[in-house]
Protein backbone atom coordinates (compact mmCIF):
# COMPACT_ATOMS: atom_id res chain seq x y z
CA UNK A 1 0.00 0.00 0.00
CA UNK A 2 1.29 3.44 -0.87
CA UNK A 3 1.66 5.61 2.22
CA UNK A 4 3.08 8.71 0.55
CA UNK A 5 2.84 9.92 -2.99
CA UNK A 6 4.77 12.90 -4.28
CA UNK A 7 4.04 14.42 -7.67
CA UNK A 8 6.04 17.11 -9.45
CA UNK A 9 7.19 18.58 -6.19
CA UNK A 10 9.01 21.84 -6.90
CA UNK A 11 10.60 24.49 -4.69
CA UNK A 12 11.88 27.68 -6.22
CA UNK A 13 13.82 30.42 -4.45
CA UNK A 14 13.76 33.33 -6.86
CA UNK A 15 15.54 32.08 -9.97
CA UNK A 16 17.02 29.11 -8.14
CA UNK A 17 15.28 25.75 -8.43
CA UNK A 18 16.10 23.95 -5.18
CA UNK A 19 13.83 21.01 -5.98
CA UNK A 20 12.50 20.40 -9.44
CA UNK A 21 9.63 18.10 -10.43
CA UNK A 22 10.27 15.45 -7.84
CA UNK A 23 7.92 12.46 -8.17
CA UNK A 24 8.03 9.22 -6.22
CA UNK A 25 5.98 7.02 -3.93
CA UNK A 26 6.70 5.24 -0.66
CA UNK A 27 5.24 1.80 -0.01
CA UNK A 28 4.15 1.09 3.54
CA UNK A 29 6.82 -0.51 5.68
CA UNK A 30 9.70 0.10 3.31
CA UNK A 31 12.93 2.03 3.77
CA UNK A 32 13.96 4.52 1.13
CA UNK A 33 17.37 6.12 0.92
CA UNK A 34 17.58 9.57 -0.59
CA UNK A 35 21.11 10.03 -1.81
CA UNK A 36 22.94 12.70 -3.70
CA UNK A 37 25.80 15.16 -3.38
CA UNK A 38 25.69 18.18 -1.07
CA UNK A 39 23.32 20.84 -2.31
CA UNK A 40 21.26 18.38 -4.34
CA UNK A 41 18.07 19.53 -2.60
CA UNK A 42 17.63 16.61 -0.20
CA UNK A 43 17.03 18.79 2.87
CA UNK A 44 14.63 21.06 0.99
CA UNK A 45 12.65 18.06 -0.24
CA UNK A 46 12.44 16.53 3.24
CA UNK A 47 11.45 19.86 4.79
CA UNK A 48 8.54 20.12 2.36
CA UNK A 49 7.44 16.58 3.16
CA UNK A 50 7.63 17.37 6.88
CA UNK A 51 5.42 20.41 6.34
CA UNK A 52 8.08 22.91 7.38
CA UNK A 53 8.36 24.44 3.94
CA UNK A 54 5.60 25.18 1.50
CA UNK A 55 6.12 23.78 -1.98
CA UNK A 56 6.11 26.17 -4.94
CA UNK A 57 4.13 23.64 -6.95
CA UNK A 58 3.34 19.94 -7.04
CA UNK A 59 1.52 17.76 -4.58
CA UNK A 60 2.23 15.62 -1.56
CA UNK A 61 -0.43 13.02 -0.83
CA UNK A 62 -0.48 11.15 2.42
CA UNK A 63 -2.65 10.45 5.39
CA UNK A 64 -1.61 13.04 7.97
CA UNK A 65 -3.51 11.34 10.72
CA UNK A 66 -1.13 8.41 10.66
CA UNK A 67 1.53 10.74 12.04
CA UNK A 68 4.95 11.77 10.88
CA UNK A 69 8.24 12.03 12.70
CA UNK A 70 10.99 14.32 11.46
CA UNK A 71 14.65 14.48 12.38
CA UNK A 72 16.48 17.52 10.98
CA UNK A 73 20.14 17.22 10.11
CA UNK A 74 21.16 19.34 13.10
CA UNK A 75 18.40 19.15 15.69
CA UNK A 76 18.36 22.09 18.12
CA UNK A 77 16.93 21.69 21.60
CA UNK A 78 16.04 24.17 24.33
CA UNK A 79 19.29 24.00 26.31
CA UNK A 80 17.54 24.64 29.62
CA UNK A 81 15.26 21.60 29.25
CA UNK A 82 16.17 18.07 30.28
CA UNK A 83 15.93 15.31 27.71
CA UNK A 84 12.91 13.81 29.46
CA UNK A 85 11.11 17.16 29.77
CA UNK A 86 11.62 17.80 26.08
CA UNK A 87 10.42 14.35 25.12
CA UNK A 88 7.30 14.68 27.26
CA UNK A 89 6.46 18.02 25.65
CA UNK A 90 7.15 16.64 22.17
CA UNK A 91 4.99 13.58 22.82
CA UNK A 92 2.06 15.63 24.11
CA UNK A 93 2.29 18.12 21.25
CA UNK A 94 2.21 15.20 18.85
CA UNK A 95 -1.01 14.03 20.39
CA UNK A 96 0.14 11.29 22.76
CA UNK A 97 -2.30 10.96 25.64
CA UNK A 98 -0.92 13.01 28.55
CA UNK A 99 -1.22 10.04 30.91
CA UNK A 100 0.95 7.92 28.64
CA UNK A 101 3.38 10.64 27.54
CA UNK A 102 5.85 10.25 30.40
CA UNK A 103 6.08 6.46 30.16
CA UNK A 104 6.31 6.62 26.39
CA UNK A 105 9.08 9.25 26.63
CA UNK A 106 11.13 7.17 29.07
CA UNK A 107 10.71 4.07 26.94
CA UNK A 108 11.86 5.87 23.82
CA UNK A 109 14.88 7.42 25.58
CA UNK A 110 15.88 3.91 26.73
CA UNK A 111 15.44 2.67 23.18
CA UNK A 112 17.89 5.23 21.73
CA UNK A 113 20.33 4.69 24.59
CA UNK A 114 19.77 7.92 26.51
CA UNK A 115 18.02 6.38 29.51
CA UNK A 116 20.87 7.19 31.89
CA UNK A 117 21.00 10.90 30.95
CA UNK A 118 17.27 11.57 30.74
CA UNK A 119 17.41 14.14 33.54
CA UNK A 120 20.41 16.04 32.15
CA UNK A 121 19.90 19.40 30.45
CA UNK A 122 20.18 19.08 26.69
CA UNK A 123 22.55 22.06 26.69
CA UNK A 124 25.24 19.71 28.02
CA UNK A 125 24.68 17.07 25.32
CA UNK A 126 27.31 16.13 22.73
CA UNK A 127 26.52 16.09 19.02
CA UNK A 128 25.98 12.34 19.05
CA UNK A 129 23.62 12.54 22.03
CA UNK A 130 21.63 15.30 20.32
CA UNK A 131 21.31 13.14 17.23
CA UNK A 132 19.94 10.27 19.33
CA UNK A 133 17.55 12.61 21.15
CA UNK A 134 16.52 13.91 17.75
CA UNK A 135 15.67 10.39 16.70
CA UNK A 136 13.82 9.81 19.97
CA UNK A 137 11.62 12.89 19.54
CA UNK A 138 10.83 11.79 15.98
CA UNK A 139 9.54 8.36 17.04
CA UNK A 140 8.04 9.04 20.49
CA UNK A 141 4.50 9.23 19.10
CA UNK A 142 4.99 6.05 17.04
CA UNK A 143 4.43 7.67 13.66
CA UNK A 144 3.74 5.61 10.58
CA UNK A 145 6.13 7.69 8.51
CA UNK A 146 9.62 8.70 9.57
CA UNK A 147 11.58 11.39 7.71
CA UNK A 148 15.25 11.59 8.64
CA UNK A 149 17.73 14.10 7.29
CA UNK A 150 21.24 12.63 7.49
CA UNK A 151 20.41 10.65 10.63
CA UNK A 152 23.86 9.15 11.10
CA UNK A 153 26.28 11.58 9.48
CA UNK A 154 27.23 13.23 12.76
CA UNK A 155 28.03 9.94 14.46
CA UNK A 156 31.22 7.89 14.75
CA UNK A 157 31.28 4.47 13.02
CA UNK A 158 30.09 2.58 16.12
CA UNK A 159 27.28 5.05 16.70
CA UNK A 160 26.32 4.83 13.03
CA UNK A 161 26.00 1.08 13.20
CA UNK A 162 23.95 1.30 16.42
CA UNK A 163 21.54 3.89 15.04
CA UNK A 164 21.13 2.02 11.74
CA UNK A 165 20.28 -1.10 13.77
CA UNK A 166 17.74 0.93 15.78
CA UNK A 167 16.15 2.14 12.56
CA UNK A 168 16.00 -1.37 11.15
CA UNK A 169 14.26 -2.57 14.30
CA UNK A 170 11.48 -0.01 13.69
CA UNK A 171 10.56 -1.82 10.52
CA UNK A 172 8.21 -2.92 9.11
CA UNK A 173 5.80 -0.93 11.34
CA UNK A 174 7.37 2.32 10.22
CA UNK A 175 7.96 3.59 6.72
CA UNK A 176 11.31 5.33 6.61
CA UNK A 177 12.63 7.92 4.19
CA UNK A 178 16.12 9.09 5.01
CA UNK A 179 18.76 11.11 3.27
CA UNK A 180 22.42 10.27 3.50
CA UNK A 181 25.64 10.84 1.71
CA UNK A 182 27.26 7.85 3.35
CA UNK A 183 26.60 5.16 0.77
CA UNK A 184 27.60 2.28 3.00
CA UNK A 185 24.67 3.14 5.24
CA UNK A 186 22.35 3.39 2.29
CA UNK A 187 23.35 -0.10 1.18
CA UNK A 188 22.61 -1.47 4.65
CA UNK A 189 18.97 -0.49 4.74
CA UNK A 190 17.13 0.31 1.60
CA UNK A 191 14.22 -1.06 -0.36
CA UNK A 192 14.25 1.90 -2.70
CA UNK A 193 16.91 4.32 -3.78
CA UNK A 194 16.19 7.90 -4.79
CA UNK A 195 19.11 9.68 -6.33
CA UNK A 196 18.91 13.46 -6.41
CA UNK A 197 21.18 15.85 -8.20
CA UNK A 198 20.79 19.59 -8.68
CA UNK A 199 17.23 19.39 -7.41
CA UNK A 200 16.19 16.63 -9.80
CA UNK A 201 15.53 12.97 -9.30
CA UNK A 202 18.06 11.38 -11.65
CA UNK A 203 17.79 7.73 -10.70
CA UNK A 204 15.38 5.59 -8.74
CA UNK A 205 14.54 1.96 -8.09
CA UNK A 206 15.45 -0.88 -5.78
CA UNK A 207 19.09 -1.34 -4.92
CA UNK A 208 19.22 -4.48 -7.11
CA UNK A 209 17.60 -2.70 -10.07
CA UNK A 210 19.90 0.26 -9.90
CA UNK A 211 22.93 -1.95 -9.52
CA UNK A 212 21.92 -3.99 -12.54
CA UNK A 213 21.45 -0.84 -14.59
CA UNK A 214 24.96 0.33 -13.88
CA UNK A 215 26.70 -3.01 -13.66
CA UNK A 216 29.28 -3.75 -16.29
CA UNK A 217 29.26 -7.46 -15.72
CA UNK A 218 32.64 -9.05 -15.90
CA UNK A 219 34.70 -11.84 -14.47
CA UNK A 220 37.94 -10.83 -12.82
CA UNK A 221 40.81 -13.31 -12.67
CA UNK A 222 44.01 -12.51 -10.84
CA UNK A 223 47.27 -14.22 -11.79
CA UNK A 224 50.72 -14.20 -10.30
CA UNK A 225 52.29 -12.52 -13.31
CA UNK A 226 51.13 -10.39 -16.22
CA UNK A 227 52.46 -12.97 -18.70
CA UNK A 228 50.27 -15.70 -17.28
CA UNK A 229 47.29 -13.33 -17.50
CA UNK A 230 47.84 -12.41 -21.12
CA UNK A 231 48.46 -16.05 -21.97
CA UNK A 232 45.12 -17.06 -20.55
CA UNK A 233 43.34 -14.26 -22.43
CA UNK A 234 44.08 -16.22 -25.59
CA UNK A 235 42.10 -19.25 -24.42
CA UNK A 236 38.73 -17.51 -24.08
CA UNK A 237 36.64 -15.71 -26.68
CA UNK A 238 35.30 -13.01 -24.35
CA UNK A 239 36.43 -9.37 -24.73
CA UNK A 240 39.36 -9.09 -22.35
CA UNK A 241 41.14 -6.20 -20.75
CA UNK A 242 44.43 -6.57 -19.01
CA UNK A 243 45.45 -4.60 -15.99
CA UNK A 244 48.83 -5.78 -14.77
CA UNK A 245 48.40 -9.35 -13.60
CA UNK A 246 44.61 -8.99 -13.44
CA UNK A 247 42.45 -10.02 -16.35
CA UNK A 248 38.91 -8.72 -16.74
CA UNK A 249 36.51 -10.52 -19.08
CA UNK A 250 33.33 -8.68 -20.03
CA UNK A 251 30.34 -11.05 -19.90
CA UNK A 252 27.50 -8.88 -21.30
CA UNK A 253 25.03 -9.89 -18.65
CA UNK A 254 25.20 -13.68 -19.18
CA UNK A 255 27.41 -14.04 -16.13
CA UNK A 256 26.15 -17.52 -15.34
CA UNK A 257 27.11 -19.32 -18.56
CA UNK A 258 30.23 -17.22 -19.08
CA UNK A 259 31.48 -18.17 -15.63
CA UNK A 260 31.00 -21.90 -16.46
CA UNK A 261 33.01 -21.55 -19.65
CA UNK A 262 35.78 -19.62 -17.93
CA UNK A 263 36.00 -22.11 -15.08
CA UNK A 264 36.18 -24.98 -17.56
CA UNK A 265 39.08 -23.29 -19.38
CA UNK A 266 40.76 -22.54 -16.09
CA UNK A 267 40.56 -26.19 -15.11
CA UNK A 268 42.83 -26.93 -18.08
CA UNK A 269 45.15 -23.90 -17.78
CA UNK A 270 45.24 -23.00 -14.10
CA UNK A 271 48.85 -21.93 -14.03
CA UNK A 272 49.42 -19.00 -11.68
CA UNK A 273 45.75 -18.32 -10.86
CA UNK A 274 45.33 -16.51 -7.55
CA UNK A 275 41.62 -15.76 -7.56
CA UNK A 276 38.44 -15.66 -9.66
CA UNK A 277 35.44 -13.51 -8.95
CA UNK A 278 32.24 -12.21 -10.50
CA UNK A 279 32.72 -8.46 -10.30
CA UNK A 280 29.83 -6.50 -8.75
CA UNK A 281 29.27 -2.80 -8.82
CA UNK A 282 29.16 -0.84 -5.52
CA UNK A 283 26.77 1.98 -4.82
CA UNK A 284 29.77 4.24 -4.56
CA UNK A 285 30.77 3.49 -8.16
CA UNK A 286 27.21 4.12 -9.30
CA UNK A 287 27.15 7.38 -7.35
CA UNK A 288 30.28 8.58 -9.09
CA UNK A 289 28.97 7.50 -12.47
CA UNK A 290 25.59 9.18 -12.01
CA UNK A 291 27.04 12.33 -10.48
CA UNK A 292 29.75 12.55 -13.12
CA UNK A 293 27.64 11.59 -16.10
CA UNK A 294 25.27 14.55 -16.03
Amino acid sequence: MTILEVQNLTKRYGEQLAVSNLSFALEEGTATALIGPNGAGKTTALSMLAGLLRETSGSIKWNRESGVGFLPQHPHFFPWMTALEFMEMAAKLSGVDSKKALAQSKKTLEFVGLGSVQNKKTGTFSGGMKQRLGLAQAIVHEPKLLLLDEPVSALDPTGRREVMDLLKSLQPDTTILYSTHILNDAEQMTDQLLFMQQGKLVEQGSLAEVKERYAEPCIRIRFQTADQASAFAGFVSLPASLNGSTLELATRGDGGTAMKTVLAKLAENAEGVVGVEQKTVSLEEIFIKVAGGR
Binding site: A50, G51, L52, R64, P72, H74, H76, L93
Partner: peptide, 13 residues
Protein backbone atom coordinates in the same frame (compact mmCIF):
# COMPACT_ATOMS: atom_id res chain seq x y z
CA UNK B 1 16.70 31.75 14.44
CA UNK B 2 18.31 29.28 16.82
CA UNK B 3 16.41 26.38 15.24
CA UNK B 4 14.73 25.29 18.48
CA UNK B 5 11.36 26.15 16.94
CA UNK B 6 11.73 23.55 14.17
CA UNK B 7 11.00 20.58 16.40
CA UNK B 8 7.81 22.34 17.56
CA UNK B 9 6.67 23.43 14.09
CA UNK B 10 7.06 19.92 12.70
CA UNK B 11 4.25 18.78 15.00
CA UNK B 12 0.57 19.52 14.46
CA UNK B 13 1.03 22.79 16.34
Amino acid sequence: RSGTATLLYVRPL
